[in-house]
Design a protein around this nucleic acid. Sequence first.
DNA 1: TTGTAAGCGTTATCAA
DNA 2: TTGATAACGCTTACAA
Lengths: 342, 342
Amino acid sequence: MKSEGKSTINDVARIAGVSKKTVSRVINRSPLLNGETRAKVEAVIEELGYVPNPQARALALRRNFLIGLIHDNPNAQMVLGVQTGILEAIRGTEFALVVHPVDRGSPTMLDDIRSFLDRQRLYGVMLLPPISENDALAQVCREAGARYVRMGSARLDDDIHMVASNDREAVAAATRHLIEQGHSRIGLVAGPHGFRSAAERRAGFEQAMTEAGLKVPRSLVADGTYRFESGIAAGDRLLDVTPRPSAIVCSNDEMAAGVMHAARQRGLTIPDDLSIVGFDDTAIASHIWPPLTTVRWPIIPMARAAAAKLLAGAVEGEDDAEEPSMFLSTLIRRGSVAAVKG
Amino acid sequence: MKSEGKSTINDVARIAGVSKKTVSRVINRSPLLNGETRAKVEAVIEELGYVPNPQARALALRRNFLIGLIHDNPNAQMVLGVQTGILEAIRGTEFALVVHPVDRGSPTMLDDIRSFLDRQRLYGVMLLPPISENDALAQVCREAGARYVRMGSARLDDDIHMVASNDREAVAAATRHLIEQGHSRIGLVAGPHGFRSAAERRAGFEQAMTEAGLKVPRSLVADGTYRFESGIAAGDRLLDVTPRPSAIVCSNDEMAAGVMHAARQRGLTIPDDLSIVGFDDTAIASHIWPPLTTVRWPIIPMARAAAAKLLAGAVEGEDDAEEPSMFLSTLIRRGSVAAVKG
DNA sequence: TTGTAAGCGTTATCAA
DNA sequence: TTGATAACGCTTACAA
């Protein structure tokens, strides 16, 4: 709070009448320090409003106090939720969050990430799906000496490197919900090939159907891209089938909104003529009409846990608390599901 | 590409047979350098795959190559759009983006930001609305010696510190569009007090109405918070007025979605019974039914321009191109507006 | 328990 | 046009 915020460790040392190393020890909470000395130094630090220079520390420690977030823009809400979670975890620490979106379509993606890692010498990085599913990427992180934690829809790595949601079980539960409402002709709008989340969600759907003794004809499964437009197209396809499905499970909310459009354009009423469930519980789910029954996965807590894993040991207090590696999703019942007619 | 990515300026200097200062000159593109020497050094750099250590540079230069994004979570789409724009501007440079959300409700917000600035010694920061409207915050940036650029819905600062959209004119245009469709009883769902964007949008609405010789009774203006729920409440209030408005201008899409819910719950059909326009053109606008007529403001180009302003001079090539400070929004006509019923 | 000296990898100063 | 040498602010040996 005093004068210019430019006092250094030398100023503190001089005024406190100790060596810089002693000040350094105070900063780094070295255990072997005379309580009196510590108090004296702390008083000076307080008076001067001294803040250690992170650049100098980074240089001396050969490590930055930066957490990287590497993603390929899955969707805005998810990216922002993750950022929120990470920031909750690093609040009050000296860590900062740097975001680094990449393009998974680019052939140089891995090289780009590698050079980003080499250059910034980050403390660690968080990897979001779908690129978090890329084992080569994890390998690049290891080679670059960067700690990493992956987020995803299934266990892909050791507990210390992974925080996962159980998408399979969540979709199975959503499907069972539909079955309990009397539905038996249920369609699926699947996610894109190559996405683990898409595979998990589809597996959950099929599992619940099979367990209920229900068939899933190939005609009732439509592939989508996780995008709205693909939801419209998939909805059109599914609703052309005779007899029409009475319910559709969508692998995310955006596609569910697309299916709603397709249904509406044919004059169908939701949920009376068609029940729909989504996945993600993004803003669209509650803002659309009727409000969408969907699966909420705890993205912010997951991201917070992931960041805490990354920081484990670096931040006092958190050291002991083992962070969970698996998070359960919950079914949010809203207005897009009704009991089957007749 | 060789060995470990740990070669330093000393390695380069030794192998090239020059001093480290010379290498430094090559890195920093010093003009006074023998072309031959430069080529020799560059060859070694290439061969070693040498990358300057940003921490060391930051220490020596007393400045980080980090751009900060300070915001108070206006909405996910906007924050992510801004991040995208900034990243486009810094792509290929050595800059990185660090995000720093704050809580404008907190009494220590300014202090928090100040200490973030002091600590990280950022190259510069971008300020998003609504906190970008806070002059005290700009002052804090200046005191901390951080360059800054503000984004907002009106000119609040010099051109070099500001990138603005013309919300007033955009809403006036949207309102005129309604008037041209024959609407005269038009309601407004305003944004929260204290937000410049809310004031601008309201002013645009009133201006268009006045110019058309239309009255705006106090009963047809409802305050909202920019949130979905407040849109429902405002919709309820406005639709209770007799005679009912035939159209409603909403200060953002989220509230427009809320108004739609309110209308639907009364059995009104959009756009036949009620026309609605929004603002922002977020995902919800195109995903909702009917698709929402709204105002799209060019957030990514704005953010890119703002970041380019911040970097002006630091990045080669961009130096000359003057970045624009004012961006125009466009009306996106979709399905939520119809001519007034005869 | 504390201090001294030597880095960490870069840039700035000022000669040569 | 180049190069010693001293910063930059901190940490890590290693002594004391």
